[in-house]
Design a binder for these strands. Structure first.
Lengths: 343, 343
DNA sequence: TGTTAGCACTCCTTCAAAACGAGTGCTAAC
DNA sequence: GTTAGCACTCGTTTTGAAGGAGTGCTAACA
């Protein structure tokens, strides 16, 4: 049996769209008046009764109107996505360096997104996969400290300062630099074996501790990307939606924003599931972050080439203006290209 | 005329302490019963009437008890501070490096503070004054990109990657490194004159553009500290205090936490005003951040020597447990020493 | 003169009942 | 299959009364 005939879909859509606007349960009369179906409220009531039985809408209490269930939203969003699917495919880009500027650009994006949509926004810095060491440089910064600079693919730079017992001669430094670069360049974390390390330590002789420090730093540099920064903005927008702004819910949500760890796991999840369009929607309990069970989350994955990808997210009430959000995210991707893609 | 006699002070203190506990307006009867003054509620009422006229307490409405005014809190806090003043003087310390660890330590501190006090906490990374360049290193990371690493006093490391038209020979790099280090080391931003720069460019010949980039990077490195990071935790604790958790106030407060800029200006202010104890209290409208007009803010300045100082802040309701917060901050300072001071 | 008991008064809070109204389900007629 | 109509449900708002905490004032007391 085909669960939903065309009329039911029209009615369901009308209910959802109306609810998106008002945030109030919507009654049969409203639909009868404001849809182009020309049906009486009684007929609508019958259909609504069916829709409820099928689980697409629900009634907060007897004698209230109906609101969409997660299942209902899901149907709505899926069909919306289909319409837009084609446009996004060609958005992929690549970009370069400017890590220092990256941070402020990302913050800016989050701010713009939040302001434009009136929802809360988050954005993660690109996460790098299969990072390879590109360049290592040791320098003596003062009599007892060595600075190790590690550049990894994508021109991400990490530093580490560590102590040494006594000043190294410049020949020693040169030798160590050469040793490290010839052995490590082009390797990813997985490719650096204990064998390689042991061999390098042997060659470094009395300075094997320096090698250890550098290996540590490399591991840290490559791994650290995994708990990379996430920037948020507009968290207070949730107060604009009564269904989210009671004390308990607001507190839960705000704390999700504060504990960036949770947002990161959301981003992570979203990277894993990535769809063709790069855009995903989590409705209510579908969200990987349990604190957001009363919200919807729309995520977009941006891919800058070279395995550098990050996540943008919009968090809002279930009655989010999905269409607008999806469009905004797409437009944004384009701007991202312009901003980050050239110099 | 001496505004307050001893009895009035006792009564005021009793009112404040009672209000700190309960968060409810306190009436004359309560004071009469729970203070050691052995006065009837009627007498207390007379005194309270005086105290109100003097502006130390106020009545939310007729037939409610009294609550402390900002002026009242101020008196209470000031006398509290006097008692503790002596202890803190010797807390100053110095510390070194480990910039990479710094971030996680700071976050950790914010979290601990928020959890211990049940208020919201913030902490800024140390801000450096009169920074001097310690060491500069240029390296060729690939055929068209140069990495400039700048180490400034306090072992803070900044990087910048920029493009060059063609690969530089290693002699050229060596020469430029030597040029930059001999000319810039030991100088602060103010000490780098246009004359110095012109001279260096001349010596650099065709590579004068590299010098420009490095100068840019140095300026950025030193200045960037001024909009340094601030970490927060426990923002949601404000929901524990009914007088702060109505929608309007909560939203205002949370947005102050999100807009780190505001917190930074708070930290800045607190650095400027620094008192002998390093601890300051802003009550209500005294706060430099207007969004916090319904809160109190306790800030502590930590000084790691070498002009490196930062700010720790606790943000909570006006009926904050000042005594406990001040103590906690002091204990924390000690732990900070242990954590950052060695290694 | 300072302290206290007593009392009338204010005004917030709580509670329950009543009025309201939005929306439904069902039935009967078209 | 559609619709009008009506009784009914149930959340929300309004209203008024009761309760209670706390005050200010006055008069008496030490």
């Amino acid at each position: 049996m085909n669960e939903l005939d065309e009329r039911k879909i029209k009615i369901l859509t009308a209910i959802i769209e109306n609810y998106l606007e008002t945030g109030e349960p919507v009654g049969s009369r409203t639909i009868s008046k404001y849809s182009d179906l020309n049906l009486s409220s009684a007929t609508i009531r019958n259909e609504m009764s069916d829709l409820e039985e099928l689980g697409y809408i629900l009634q907060p209490h007897t004698s209230a109107g109906r609101i969409p269930s997660d299942k209902g939203y899901r149907l709505y969003v899926d069909s919306l996505m289909q319409q837009k699917e084609s446009e996004v495919a060609e958005l992929k880009t690549l970009m370069i360096e400017r890590q220092d500027k990256m941070e402020s650009v990302l913050k800016q994006i989050a701010r713009v997104l939040a302001a434009n949509t009136n929802y809360a926004a988050m954005i993660t810095a690109p996460q790098y996969h299969q990072n390879k060491v590109k360049f290592i440089q040791l320098s003596q910064v003062d009599s007892t400290h060595i600075l190790a600079v590690i550049v990894i693919e994508g021109n991400i730079v990490k530093n580490k300062i560590f102590s040494v017992a006594e000043r190294l001669t410049s020949e020693t430094l040169f030798r160590l630099n050469f040793l490290l670069n010839t052995n490590l360049n082009g390797l990813s974390l997985e490719q650096i074996t204990l064998g390689t390390i042991a061999q390098m330590k042997e060659q470094a002789g009395v300075h094997s501790d320096v090698v250890s420090h550098v290996i540590d730093a490399v591991a840290e540099a490559i791994r650290e990307d995994n708990d990379m920064e996430v920037y948020t903005s507009g968290a207070t927008n949730i107060f604009k939606y009564p269904e989210l702004s009671d004390q308990a819910r607001a507190s839960e949500l705000i704390s999700a924003f504060e504990e960036k760890q949770q947002l990161l796991s959301l981003a992570q999840k979203s990277l894993e599931n990535t769809s063709e369009t790069g855009i995903q929607v989590y409705i209510g309990n579908e969200s990987p972050v349990k604190n957001m069970k009363d919200c919807s989350v729309v995520t977009a994955t941006y891919d800058l080439g070279g395995g550098m990808q990050g996540t943008i997210g919009i968090i809002g009430p279930k009655r989010m203006d999905y269409e607008n959000v999806v469009d905004t995210l797409k437009t944004l991707m384009k701007q991202l290209d312009t901003l980050l893609g050239d110099k």
